[in-house]
């Protein structure tokens, strides 16, 4: 039987689908009977969702332009050195 402590230890492997099927079934059974662990799982997944959302910053267009300018300039410099 899985304890709450073991459930927390196994949680990443559980949400990533990396647990052995037997262990995953035992953990799912524990979750069905444990409201604290169910809340823990939900908040764990909720945190992952918030991280994904928080990190979805678009790359500014002007930065894309500057990146191309930088590469052009530096590759040009490399070419000049190689021909000297």
């Amino acid at each position: 039987m899985i304890t709450c402590r073991e459930m927390v230890d196994l949680l990443s492997d559980y949400v990533d689908g990396d647990l052995e099927p037997m262990v995953a079934r035992q953990l799912a059974a524990h979750l069905r009977g444990c409201t604290d662990c169910t809340a823990f799982l939900r908040t764990f997944k909720g945190t992952q969702a918030l991280v994904r959302e928080a990190a979805c910053e678009e790359m500014p267009e002007e930065l894309k332009v500057r990146l191309r300018d930088f590469l052009r300039s530096n590759l040009q410099r490399g070419r000049s050195r190689s021909t000297n």
Binding site: T3, C4, R5, A39
Partner: peptide, 15 residues
């Protein structure tokens, strides 16, 4: 966790 491995305090669901 308690010695038996259970949550010591209730876990609120704020998700």
């Amino acid at each position: 966790f308690s010695q038996e491995g259970s949550h010591l305090t209730p876990v609120p669901d704020w998700s």
